[in-house]
Structure formats: structure tokens, C-alpha cells
Amino acid sequence: MTTTTATRAALLVLADGRFPAGGHAHSGGAEAAIAAGRVSDPASLEAFCRGRLGTAGLVAAALAAAAAAGANPLLLDEAADARTPSPALRMTARKLGRQMMRAARACWPSPALDALAAARPRGAHQPVVLGLAAAAAGLGPLDAAHAAAYEAVSGPATAAVRLLSLDPFDATAVLARLAPELDRVAELAVAAAESALDDLDALPAASAPLLEIAAEAHAAWPVRLFAS
């Protein structure tokens, strides 16, 4: 379950913030946390990202790794639903999954992506699509986990730059400081994904109550800059 150097560049394409899969319009809960005054500077952004990484990020990374390792994507999609009590976040995950599907099929056409697109025309949970995309690109479960974990923190960091006019160097330094934790989360995710091939309950279910509560409040705002 390791990256072959021959495909490493594909991971850069997949994890690029400019990969056209809709991520730019989502703050990963940062907009709500900023409005609540919970995130206001690089330190609180880092704490936010650390909490999101260890919860939603870990779950996403494990789902992506399991999908890349060949677990049944429809069962993973169901497991993702059970791990997402907030309907706003389930909808966001499916919306982003559909957008990721479009970009992935254009970049790395594959029967597995086609099959999931046909089975879930309104979108499967994004990490599941991400995992299949990684596999289609010749990447392994660890790559998929890294991409998902990184996305869990890069989205909020970018949003904080836009919403707080945070110094972009500070925001990027937050991501750099989190790098060792990202690696660890990706490794945990892969280990869980391997067990999940036998028993889906082995997938992590780490939850962040404030993210769930705030996501519903945010979805009801009449005016907001980010979709989530």
C-alpha cells in the first residue's frame, strides 16, 4: 500500500488546490467558526485544523484509502452517511463527490468511476470518489489518505485567508506545521482501511460535535460566502 515513484506526480495533480472539483467554494466549517469568533488568528486556525484533521479528516482519509484499496464503494458511501449526522454535511459531501467525479473521469477515465457515477448520479460521498480517483490515477491507499487528510485542512486555511485577510504566509505555515500530523493521520487511515476490507466497522468514526452543529447553523444563513 505504498506509492510507487512512477505515479507520484499524479498525487500532486489530485491534491492540487486548483484541481477543479469544487473545493474552492467550501470552507470546511471555517466560515462558521470565524463568524462565531472561534477562529480569529493563526493559532486558533491551527487548533481548528488540528481538530478537524483528527475527526472529519481521519474519517475522510480512511474512506478514501478503503476505496482506493478496493472496498465496495457503495458500502463505504453508506458508512460515510452513518458517520455524518448533519444533513447539511451529507449534502455537501455528495455535492463535492459529484464534482470530484466529473473532474476525475476527465483526468483518469476508469470503469470503477463510471460504475459509481451510474449508481450514485446525485453524487457519492467525496472521499469515496477521491479514493477511486486515486486508484484510477495509479495511486495507492496511502496517497488517497494523504490527499483526503490534506484537503481537510487546506480548505479551512484558504478560507481563513479570504475571510480574515489572514497573512497567507501565516496560514500556509499552519499547514506546514501540521504536516507530521497529516502523515500520521494518513497512516492511521490506511491501517484502518486495511482492516475495513474485512469489517467496515473498523473504519474510524471520529466526530467533531461543533463542526456538526455549526454546519447546520451555517447552512441556514441567508447570506454567506462559502457553501459550507
Partner: peptide
């Protein structure tokens, strides 16, 4: 973990307290 008719309905784990990364931060508690 709650299953209904054998299918996952809800699966939530909360990890809180010393040693848990970010638990008292703005994303969790």
C-alpha cells in the same frame, strides 16, 4: 455504533481530554 436491519445507521466516536489532538479547539468542543 447503531445498526438497523444490519445496516449502519449511526457511527460516532467522540475522543475528548488530554492527549487528543484538537479536542478543546474550535472544531470539537
Amino acid at each position: 455504533t447503531v445498526r438497523r436491519g444490519g445496516r449502519a445507521l449511526l457511527d460516532q466516536e467522540v475522543a475528548l481530554g488530554p492527549g487528543v489532538p484538537g479536542w478543546s479547539g474550535p472544531a470539537v468542543l
